[in-house]
Design a binder for these strands. Structure first.
Lengths: 354, 354
DNA sequence: ATGAAAGCGCTAACAC
DNA sequence: GTGTTAGCGCTTTCAT
């Protein structure tokens, strides 16, 4: 029972590979050249003049032996690795973090880097450990991300390498950060309603203090101001940022005679839908609604599909690695704002009196 | 403008760290000992007798210099890395893949391994590239996962290392696989309804051939058989596996006089909810419903919250690395079935006539 | 109890 | 054109 050595393989009499790590020396020997020559052809060195004969023999040897360069050895000698660490406080709780990973992964990949991910559940010990491990693996830098936009207290060890904050920021640590532009998002959401002709646009906002709460409200006011519409305090209604909140806040929305409502997020909108349905009100005919987040599994599948504004998680991940790699000339420092684009679906129409 | 060198750091006059990679030699020098000694205290070697004095000096030097062992160098000399590769065909499309990553990450971590993730969007070229890269980084093995349970055609390069399939399987490549137990899940879902006292339990199944389609149906029949209930073909209704499908299939469910319905997945259930509401039917009083998948953002937030059966993504990830590492004595080969547990919420009650 | 030295697989001068 | 050689940071016999 050698189960513990090769648990995942089939018969042990396979080609070779797993058992015999073919090294550059093996190739050199097989091709009858030196390792330097092999190195040169493998890396296609610009200044390296290698004879066609030798080059061919090397290539063939590589092929036959199934040689793979050892990236770790390369890293060791070159001094810089191709790893980028991503520490996330929750990769499974929401579909959101997944998009950040995806964005970061794609962009890292595009630049020849690989993502080393660590999830920490916000546990400080795990965070320190994860960062240590990444540092020990000589990562090029670390992306520290949270699953919702907030201020974060960043582990000190982050200072030991290049780091960028994704979907969070820190006023104490002077680290570059990329975050969603909540304000522009709030404005965009509101304008979706305003440009459809609505005059009394309610805003169900969360009671939880956060960049989202403040930013979206500011954006709401921006849109109103820009449209020359008055800001009516009684049209902004407080609610918990979930379905229950949207459901309960609906009464007030109707009481205020709003013909449209901007919900703090898609879940709130989902609750609002329920309330509207109970009152036999039709969306968008009787009331127009827009959400926020574009939590696809909700927004795209509500009836009617919800017009909303997307949280740019994928772009956040992309921007995170671009900033880390110094690919973007930093236009906004220290916090880079990523736009929240509108996602028009079917929950917005013109007001009844239009 | 040294932007491209240290784009993500603050002032360049920082502690040191990033600029000066402290090596073991530095520590040795500072402590006035040899690198061998340092190595021994760092690794707390069993057989290494190091004087207390020397040991202390080394520890202090490590502390003062902020030394971190270079994991890559360690790997190079020891021959085996602490990486586990995870290639996924879609990490962002659904919240599901995130949970697989999370499970894999947690379990890998627990065993001193780090996850190297690569997303490929199912693109074969990207897959080959990702696997190459992982191989070059001398990963301990590779987890190949898909975001929904299906047969997969696995890249040949996988054969070069230990590999296990997660949430997919392959009949051609003889690779170990861990997949959800669809059949047991189907049975569990049905029993949730049967034990509540329902006699006519409908099953809205998908028309798409898949392990889920076949497995859940088999489970449905198992439950019926075990309860001594007859299998009535007209109670299984075909539908597309989404909200629209559930909505449309509802008519037939009611026409058949069912008092309970097992929906192929949560989205189907969501559509069914809509249809029930339109008919002014109450869940669970007028009709009991159970879903499948436990797509939390749907199931937990429907009104009433949906009783469902969970797809064990997290556990799939865990089992994947355990199998890879040979931690589990393989009881089921080649395909290991992971249980789909019931998630009781509020959409199931006793039938009206009970 | 501690150190010298030989590599791990690879790259980069620099010889020839 | 191609080979020699000296490391990269570390572990590990084997001396002392």
């Amino acid at each position: 029972m050698t189960t513990s050595r090769t648990p995942a393989v089939g018969p042990d009499d396979e080609p070779s590979a797993r058992t015999s790590p073919v090294t550059m020396r093996d190739v050199a020997q097989a091709a009858g050249v030196s390792v330097a020559t092999v190195s040169h052809v493998v890396n296609d060195k610009p200044g390296a003049r290698i004879g066609d004969a030798a080059r061919d023999r090397v290539k063939q040897a590589i092929e036959e032996l199934g040689y793979r360069p050892n990236a770790l050895a390369q890293t060791l000698v070159k001094g810089n690795s191709k790893f980028i660490g991503l520490v996330a406080d929750a990769i499974a709780t929401t579909p959101f973090a997944g998009r950040i990973i995806q964005g970061a992964q794609d962009e890292a990949w595009k630049n020849g880097y690989v993502l080393l991910v660590a999830n920490t559940d916000g546990n400080e010990g795990a965070e320190e450990e994860a960062i240590s491990m990444m540092l020990e693996h000589k990562v090029r830098g670390i992306l520290y991300s949270t699953w919702y936009h907030r201020e974060a207290s960043v582990p000190v060890a982050l200072a030991e390498t290049d780091a960028v904050l994704v979907d969070c920021f820190s006023d104490s640590a002077a680290l570059p950060a990329v975050v969603p532009d909540e304000r522009q998002g709030g404005r965009t959401a509101t304008e979706l309603l305003l440009t459809a002709g609505h005059k009394r646009v309610a805003f169900i906002n969360t009671t939880t203090p956060s960049p989202a709460q403040a930013g979206r409200l500011a954006g709401y006011r921006d849109a109103l101001a820009h449209a020359g519409a008055p800001f009516d305090e009684s049209l902004v209604i407080d609610a918990s940022p979930d379905q229950e909140g949207g459901y309960s806040a609906a009464a007030e929305v109707f009481a205020q005679g709003a013909t449209a409502v901007f919900c703090h997020n898609d879940r709130v909108a989902m609750g609002f839908y329920d309330a509207a349905r109970e009152r036999n009100l039709r969306i968008p005919d009787d009331i127009a609604v827009v959400g926020f987040d574009d939590q696809e599994v909700i927004s795209a599948h509500l009836r009617p599909p919800l017009t909303t504004v997307a949280l740019p998680h994928y772009e956040l991940g992309v921007a995170g690695v671009r900033t880390l790699l110094g690919l973007d000339s930093p236009t906004q420092v220290p916090r880079q704002l990523i736009a929240c684009p509108p996602v028009p679906r079917r929950s917005v129409g013109a007001p009844a009196d239009a």
